[in-house]
Simulated scan of single mutants.
Amino acid sequence: MTGSFEKKYTFENAEQEIGLVGAQDANLRLLEEGMKVDVTVFGDDLTVRGAESAVLATVEIVRALTGLIKKGIKLNATDVVSAMKMSERGTLEYFDDLYTETLLRDNKGRSVRVKNYGQRRYVQAIRHNDITFGIGPAGTGKTYLAVVMALAALKRGDVERIIITRPAVEAGESLGFLPGDLKEKVDPYLRPIYDALNMLIGSEHTERFMDRGTIEIAPLAYMRGRTLDNAFIILDEAQNTTPQQMKMFLTRLGFGSQMIVNGDISQIDLPGKVRSGLIQAQTILKQVDHIEFIEFGADDVVRHPVVGSIINAYDAYDLDQESKKEA
């Protein structure tokens, strides 16, 4: 590693050490890779070596993670990655806040919490606005957190039902070869929604809610002509709406309802010259009261660190290709 600066952190007990190191030293390896330092543990001491700024930042991350262990929270790789991302952004002081509130308990009784500062901003926006737009790459937790907030609202009795939809861009050729009606054809594309629901409330509860109409999952075409009162409405993959579809969807908002619109403007599947309704909405609705836009970046991706690097590499490649075209 670059530099020869060294600093020690002393654990108070073996429980803290075991919790921080992780199975087969997995958390240490993440720290080494993410912070570009060497980390060794001997006895009660964790030693970090490398460039001074990286070493000092790593020790602060270790201190923050150990603080969670003291509260009885079992660390996983996501926690380590979140701490590193927040350190990089200068928001590590808020790290502990992420774990003070449980948004919901999942099917196995585990606490569901936000994983980074970007998700915290997203949740706060949802709480304080009628319509929240979450814009950014896959892996930032947009869809999952939207479902969490919808279920929490249903549980509190704030809404009577949850409606989840997405545009069926593939309803032309590629969906045409699949059996069944439009809903059956689009269901495979809504798999992430079903997965989130099954993880949070279990498959039996999900089916029961859907049978009763408490949870409705349908293509965007099914929203036309409806006014949706007392509902929590989620539009996923919104980058694939046309401007007309986006306007149609947003004007379905009824009394006692709330909307979340999620999308990734780098993954638009619309035909050539068709403009994305999500991109247009960013321009038109920026100054409208009770609507907030939260933009996620690669730094907000809560998957393996390599995923963020992959996104950055593709973004850099796209920029390079664009500059070559212009030249």
Results as ranks from 00 to 15, higher is better:
M1P: 12
T2N: 12
G3K: 11
S4Y: 13
F5C: 04
T10F: 06
A14S: 10
Q24W: 09
A26S: 15
L28M: 14
L28T: 11
L30P: 00
M35T: 09
K36P: 00
K36I: 12
V37H: 00
V37Y: 07
D44Q: 13
T47A: 04
T47I: 13
I61Q: 02
I69M: 10
K70Y: 08
G72N: 09
K74N: 11
V80Q: 04
V81L: 03
V81W: 02
S87C: 09
R89I: 00
L92F: 08
F95L: 01
F95I: 02
D96S: 14
D97E: 12
T102N: 11
L103F: 08
D106M: 04
D106W: 06
R110S: 12
R110H: 15
Y117S: 04
Y117P: 01
Q124H: 11
I126G: 03
I131M: 13
G136F: 00
Y144W: 03
L145C: 04
L145H: 01
A153S: 14
K155L: 10
G157H: 10
E160Q: 09
R166K: 11
A168H: 10
G176T: 07
L178Y: 12
G180F: 10
K183R: 15
K185I: 11
K185F: 07
P188V: 11
Y189D: 07
Y189K: 08
M199Y: 14
M199E: 14
G202K: 05
G202C: 05
T214C: 04
Y222T: 06
R224I: 03
T227M: 11
E237Y: 03
A238Y: 01
F249H: 06
F249R: 04
L250Y: 01
L250R: 02
V261G: 05
V261Y: 06
Q267G: 03
P271T: 06
R275C: 04
I279H: 08
T283Y: 12
Q287V: 08
I291P: 05
E292L: 13
E292Q: 14
F296N: 01
G297V: 03
G297S: 15
A298N: 10
D299Q: 13
R303V: 00
R303I: 01
V307C: 02
I311P: 00
L319T: 13
D320L: 12
Q321D: 13
K325G: 09
E326W: 10
A327C: 09
